[in-house]
């Protein structure tokens, strides 16, 4: 698995983590190109089925990242996201989607460095885990 380059789909909230990603870019910070960002208005709108579908389609991991507790632009969207991810963490490992493949983080708008570090760390982690099994031919 030396040359395995994971694909990570990241659902990032407009107000915090997307802005942090933007800041990482304008600050010319480097982070692995394995991540594909999807900007959403709030982590509270990330339906569990988006995450399930993403993994079933062959993404190696999903990152959901938004504002720190207390900072949500919509007051409590991130708390809802947290409970939903907790539910997925209870359900998905049984079917071979390890907990590490569904990651929830809080990265504030001014945390460009933390964003770049989180991505780098996650890519490293997923490389160790190996590719998701849904890449196999007859799954689904």
């Amino acid at each position: 698995m030396e040359d395995f380059e994971p694909i990570i789909i990241a659902f990032v909230c407009n107000w915090c983590t997307y802005t942090a990603a933007d800041l990482a870019g304008t600050s010319r910070l480097k982070y692995p190109a394995n991540v594909r960002l999807i900007r959403v208005m709030c982590t509270g709108m990330v339906d569990p089925k988006y995450i399930i579908k993403t993994l079933l389609e062959g993404a190696d991991a999903v990152l959901i990242s938004g504002c720190h507790p207390g900072d949500c632009h919509y007051i409590n969207g991130n708390y809802k996201a947290r409970r939903r991810i907790k539910l997925l963490h209870a359900l998905l490992p049984q079917f071979g989607f390890e907990r590490e493949r569904v990651k929830l983080t809080w990265i504030g708008a001014s945390d460009g460095i933390e964003f770049a570090e989180t991505i780098a760390e996650m890519v490293k982690e997923i490389k160790m885990l190996g590719p998701v099994k849904t890449k196999l031919k007859m799954v689904i």
Binding site: L56, A90, L91, K137
Partner: peptide, 24 residues
């Protein structure tokens, strides 16, 4: 993408999503 697609599609997707909806 894989050279083959099982039809009907979205079967596993349906069941895991249903788990996310009703398991609680």
């Amino acid at each position: 993408r894989k050279g083959i697609l099982k039809m009907p599609t979205d079967t596993i997707f349906f069941h895991i999503t249903r788990m996310a909806h009703i398991s609680l």
